[in-house]
């Protein structure tokens, strides 16, 4: 046997042994911290309550609301169509198919936006896509949409459009006519302003 073959054989074993010595790199599907920082700087993860209301009214199938509050709070009241993934259970195996998916925009919400944002950061670190946070959470939902305030007379038309949208939405979501209502908007004639729909991002692979 020629010497060359012995050299080749020992080289092969040496290289393979080097592989064993390599430190274990855990290649979890995680985005690096630098990328996570960029993601949290990007405010586009926040969807306004108005936008979400419009999408629910449109029966947009590409939106999935995730209530991160406790099961107790969820059972007492939650947004229509929302599923309950308490913040503590965010990483549980059974919820991963809901959170880690393509084609549906997952919108986290809580009473404020802190807990929802925490769930968002955890899932974003895992590299999940199409995640959003409802800006201001249920508190803003109830103060803005369920009890819209009449804009002052001097406001631009857009504000009045927004107001009538919110008013209509509040009726849609079972809030009835808000107490502060002074405008005579007849229930039948309410035109729900359809917001421009955000196209669902089709996940490419």
């Amino acid at each position: 046997m020629s010497k060359v073959y012995i050299i080749f054989a020992s080289l092969l074993i040496l290289v393979a042994f080097g592989l064993v010595l390599l430190p274990d790199t855990e290649h979890e599907d995680q985005i690096p911290p630098e990328a996570l920082l960029k993601e949290i700087m990007n405010q586009s993860r926040f969807l306004s309550a108005d936008l979400i209301a419009a999408r629910i009214i449109d029966e947009d199938p590409s939106i999935m609301l995730v209530d991160v509050r406790t099961a107790e709070a969820y059972n007492s009241y939650s947004l229509p169509g929302a599923i309950n993934i308490p913040l503590k259970e965010t990483l549980d195996e059974e919820w991963q198919p809901y959170l880690n998916q393509r084609g549906v925009d997952v919108v986290f919400f809580s009473n404020g936006d802190l807990f929802a944002d925490q769930a968002w950061i955890l899932c974003s670190r895992l590299g999940y896509k199409n995640l959003y946070v409802m800006e201001g959470g249920l508190n803003q939902w109830f103060t803005q949409i369920m009890q819209p305030t009449v804009p002052p007379d001097t406001s631009p038309n857009e504000d009045f459009d927004l107001y009538s949208f919110r008013k209509a939405a509040s009726i849609y979501f079972g809030g009835g006519a808000p107490a502060q209502s002074t405008q005579d908007i007849k229930g039948e004639n309410i035109q729900i302003i359809r917001r421009e729909k955000k196209t669902a991002t089709a996940g490419g692979c």
Binding site: Y5, A9, L12, I13, A16, F17, L19, V20, L22, D24
Partner: peptide
Amino acid sequence: SSQLFIFLFTVVAVAAFY
């Protein structure tokens, strides 16, 4: 571990060559 398996496999391969 995959790395260990590859190492053992390599040893077996070289032994087989011999």
